[in-house]
Design a protein around this nucleic acid. Sequence first.
DNA 1: ATCGGCTCGCGCAA
DNA 2: TGCGCGAAGCCGAT
Length: 449
Amino acid sequence: MREERVRVLKVGEEKRGPVLYWMSRDQRASDNWALLFAQSLALEKKVPLGVVFCLVEDFLGATLRQYGFMLRGLDEVKTSLEERNIPFFLLQGTPGTEIPRFVREENVGSLVTDFDPLRIKRAWKKTVMENVTLPFYEVDAHNVVPAFIASPKEEYAARTFRPRISRVLDEFLDGFPDPVNHPFPWRRKKAAGEGGAERLPSLPLDRTVGEVPWLRPGTAAGMGALEDFVRNGLAAYPGSRNDPVRDGQSQLSPYLHFGQIAPQRVALAVRSAPVSPEAKKVFLEEIVVRRELSDNFCLRNEDYDSLEGAPAWARKTLHDHRRDRRPYRYRTEELEGAETHDPLWNAAQMEMVKRGKMHGYLRMYWAKKILEWTGTPEEALDIAIGLNDKYELDGRDPNGYAGCLWSIGGLHDRAWPVRPVFGSIRYMNDRGARRKFDVDAYIRKVASL
DNA sequence: ATCGGCTCGCGCAA
DNA sequence: TGCGCGAAGCCGAT
């Protein structure tokens, strides 16, 4: 593994004791650089290795839908790790309290965690850091090119970020080593406690948004979806990705969001697939450049989920058009209930509510119409992020924040001809959608869900 | 079907 | 200081 993936969060005092990987964003037992680094430390010191996940009861308003997908995936992680003599502990509570307590109780010698640019995760790590004395490392197991290496600043657009990735991609896109059994058993084993899915009934969750039956959670299912896409979808991807009727997208984003599969595994599979160089290029642009640009945005911009995070030209133009007349106005509840005059928008909203996933092209259209139909750009952004985080399996992800800001706040985009309400933010309408795909067929498809 | 204009600012060449 | 060009478009002219 390239050592640039590792950042020392705290030098700490070296002492003998097991190595603990505090798993957070990258919820998988293989293809995980943070786990691999933790194991290499443990092997070097000849000590046990354990993995802990801290279950927060109310993570940014997450729902049964998202907790169900996550906890069922974690149960698979537990099984896979235990087969390799690595215990998995599912704690419940605030990481700032629970991780330092676990470290003390089990006499942990070194602590490793994975990388996440979101501010709540950074705040947790800061508290943990202040409450432990041992060495504490962070490994970017989510990005092919680690976010701290990719760029030292907030990038202006994909075109400024792309060359930074291309320069070093070959160095970082290396293969994952095979998992190995850990030779040193964890001794004073804390009581294992209930499994993840068993805890679902007792968690204080929003149960109005139920689990989705059509997408099976976990690493095995995610790897299956990847295999299926590479075999049956990748070749046609450039032509079908913007057609929500054909559904030419990879369906991998929920697995990627919860870290159940590694983006790097996806990139490796695509790179060696027997398809045209063009198809590979188009998909790698999505899976590497665009996805990692979202991490760059959230890492380098404190205001990644508010209009303050939008570029200055965009904030100005939206402000200049603040008082423009809005021909349609909807309240949050009307939007949430898919009760607008626009059947395409309603269908997109219904697809998200029912399936936990909205097609990529429609996400842009959907968010831009919220800007057009609500009182202020700030309100529009709050509603878009709120609905996305409530219903999408991949809510609360850097990609979601960057996507909403792209649609509403001109992020990573350029100026376009001036329109009412939008100013020079790129405008979209259903005529454009009709040029691209059979809108009525899509509406019928959603109605039959 | 295809094309140009719309419009802004970064990054690089000079 | 000038210039090319960009994350998924729209619209009207041809």
